[in-house]
Design a protein around this nucleic acid. Structure first.
Lengths: 340, 340
DNA sequence: GATTGGCACTCGAAGTTGATGAGTGCCAGA
DNA sequence: TCTGGCACTCATCAACTTCGAGTGCCAATC
């Protein structure tokens, strides 16, 4: 009973602080919410909440502000995700529907996410490692120069150049092409890499050197982690709403946003598709990101979570709304990838 | 004679203001530069410069600050571009040398440009319209589903899906493939689009519907202006050095950086490769970019300027240094593209 | 035992004042 | 044409004050 009210007070503090951006005092609280008790009572509750480390006062005679721990409790216990309204859902669907290729889907998603949440949006390209090989194409650009094109199920295309030691006639090229495709088309990346090993031995000795080069190049392309690191960031201008605290907050954040590696780590903590991950304030190893939270989730065809997307924003953010939006966009993206 | 000294004063004001970020007064000026005259004389010169609208004082009893017009004069008349030092040149060469594909080149260039100039760097991907077709590949993903891959001389790869009305056997596919490649391989985009018109008529009637679809898709991909709009932005964290003036300066700038269209317009004003374009302050139509300057130039294989790159920074910037760097990076990028 | 009203207290925010000094414009003399 | 001198302006900064929101605690009340 009394405990319930305390949580109600915490919730009220979080909500008020998020919307007003100012420390909230006991008086303002009872005025804005129907708590049915007097300011003095609320003060007692606040004192208790402060003892538990859930809220904090910046200085002696100011209102209270939620701590990271307070937000955590709020997110874990006090947040219910309402489904989005039908018009909103339709807006998302419409916006993503028109996409033509993978780049386009990712670009649109970032914009959408940034606009809806008014935060910085981050979308990771579908990871290589969990997709399958759709096709490999070999093109002779010159007698000893080969263009290798690797097409993946996610719509991603990787290309590599290879310089052969000897000339390769068209027929041998066709043989090699079909050998490679036979071996790995349809395979998941991890298995395709292994399947490539057998290819050189399966072709005639004359083609073998070329086959070895092609397979090595392909294997390298498939295990190349750089390609796993592709990420798109958008809505940076929403950072302007961060208020002041420029050098202390914004600069490291901008740097982190450019350091895609850090972003990937953040997104990487995501679990299965459908599960929302929320990192609040200094939770996690990145002290330069204190003061910011990350809301992320996985997405992918058939909910396989081949990649992640999410937003980065100030700790003081509208968690329920943001979480709902992130989840919704991830779902629609997964659906789009399903169709492709 | 007197005119010469005035220009020397202007140059000194620009240089001092750029390095100190503070309005510069007559006394400080004679101390830091060997002008050989007294502060009083400098004051007279300053008054004259102010009458000409080249400098400006924020408030009575403060030092002077160059106006946009002042910077313009400085850049046009008082700037000499020194070649870069050998170690710097080598650093650039080394950094760009290791690139493997087009994406990589562009990414490295942005980083390099941002680091060297400590400004926000912008690099446009090589434009479709001035590159040539290297190869077209057709892949049957399913009996009626065709993946069309368009490979351009700049290393760019465009892909499209096409759903056929009827099944297409392998042989017809091969015929179509070679017909298309015969028609447009090696052609410049603009001509390739036209050359495609004749292809459907050149093949057997049975293949014609498929040919029409493929050609239409290719033509669309080649004239798709969205692909011309690809741009990479980097070094946003350098914005932190903008000092204050947050909401008035930074927000619109961040927005502009996301509005790639605006950036493209800015870069688009670039002339031939090798010619540096400098837009200062409110020059040009973008009033939201008052307070910022753009230094850009074209680049491309054989100095054909297939695209542009440059930096965006505060009006108060080190123009000579920045211009030198931008030009150097553009040259090295052109060279890399030449080799590929 | 929980709740409430009252009251003294704290302390940041905002405004006021005055000293400081960098910088100016102008003028008379070299 | 340049220079030194002088009176004047005005932003900046520090010290000081006022103001008020908000607190903690306590005795009274339900």
């Amino acid at each position: 009973m009394m405990e319930d009210r305390r949580l109600a007070v915490l919730r009220a503090i979080v909500e008020d602080y998020v919307s007003t951006e100012e420390p909230v005092g006991s008086k303002a609280l009872v005025e804005r919410h129907q708590l049915g008790v007097s300011p003095a009572t609320v003060r007692n509750d606040m004192a208790a909440l402060e003892d538990e480390g859930l809220i904090h006062q910046p200085h002696t005679s100011a209102g209270r502000v939620p701590t990271d721990k307070g937000y955590r409790l709020f997110v874990d216990k006090l947040t219910t995700l309402k489904p989005m309204s039908a018009p909103e859902q339709r807006a998302i669907a419409n916006f993503l529907e028109g996409s033509v290729d993978l780049d386009d889907v990712v670009q649109r998603s970032v914009r959408l996410l940034a606009q809806l949440t008014r935060q910085v949006a981050v979308v990771q390209y579908p990871t290589l490692s969990r997709s399958t090989v759709r096709h490999v194409e070999l093109v002779a650009l010159a007698p000893t120069r080969l263009l290798i094109v690797l097409i993946l199920s996610t719509g991603r295309v990787e290309q590599r150049l290879a310089d052969l030691a000897d000339e390769l006639d068209d027929e041998s090229l066709a043989v090699l092409r079909s050998a490679v495709n036979l071996a790995i088309t349809g395979e998941i990346i991890a298995e395709a890499v292994m399947a490539l090993d057998g290819v050189p031995e399966a072709v005639e000795p004359t083609v073998r050197p070329a086959a070895e080069l092609v397979c090595a190049t392909l294997a390298e392309a498939m295990s190349d982690h750089r390609s796993d690191e592709r990420i798109l960031v958008g809505g940076t201008s929403n950072l302007a709403r961060f208020g002041e605290g420029f050098d202390t907050t914004l600069r490291p954040l901008l740097e982190a946003l450019e350091e895609h590696v850090v972003l990937l780590k953040l997104l990487g903590e995501t679990g299965a598709a459908g599960a929302l991950t929320v990192r609040i304030g200094h939770e996690g190893p990145y002290q330069e990101l204190a003061g910011t939270s990350v809301v992320a989730t996985g997405y992918g065809p058939e909910d396989q979570a081949v990649a992640s997307l999410g937003i980065v924003g100030p700790t003081r953010m509208d968690y329920p709304g943001t979480m709902t939006t992130v989840r919704a966009v991830a779902r629609y993206m997964s659906r789009i990838l399903d169709e492709a």
